[in-house]
């Protein structure tokens, strides 16, 4: 979970850093950070919980975009380029850190597409007499 806390902070940093580092006048760069930042922070926060930990992988795409953006959008500011690429590399790496998952979730989201799953097997073992009306 610590990895996703850092990713959330990095997303918020993207929202604030154009102003803090003094290149907020570069409209394209700043807009890009203002769009990607909240997206990264949101995915990271959603993956704080074990049942939705997989959402951390959604950050692979925006993180990869941060690595490419300086070239695709033609950044003309070295500070912004370094900032975006460093944040992109960190978020990319940390999005692969799963962290501890202590609970069990009946086989998780993947089980919804499978016939044989942990929740189906466990349900068969459960006596159901007291559930009848």
């Amino acid at each position: 979970m610590w990895a996703q806390i850092i990713n959330a902070i990095l997303g918020i940093w993207l929202m604030a850093s154009a102003t803090i580092l003094g290149y907020a006048d570069a409209k394209t760069i700043t807009d890009n950070q203002h769009i990607v930042g909240p997206v990264i922070a949101s995915f990271a926060i959603i993956s704080w919980w074990e049942a939705t930990r997989a959402v951390r992988l959604y950050n692979v795409l925006p993180a990869a975009w941060l690595l490419l953006a300086p070239f695709v959008l033609g950044y003309d500011n070295a500070t912004a380029t370094i900032n975006n690429m460093a944040v992109g590399a960190l978020v990319l790496g940390l999005s692969f850190v799963k962290g501890k998952v202590e609970g069990t979730y009946g086989g998780g989201w993947a089980s919804l597409w499978k016939k044989d799953s942990l929740h189906a097997r466990e349900a068969l073992k459960t006596p159901r007499t007291d559930l009848e009306k």
Partner: peptide, 17 residues
């Protein structure tokens, strides 16, 4: 979002069964 989705998962698994 995160804490609401676990319950949704339990319901969807029930619907699958």
């Amino acid at each position: 979002i995160g804490p609401a989705m676990d319950e949704m998962l339990a319901s969807l698994q029930y619907m699958r069964r």
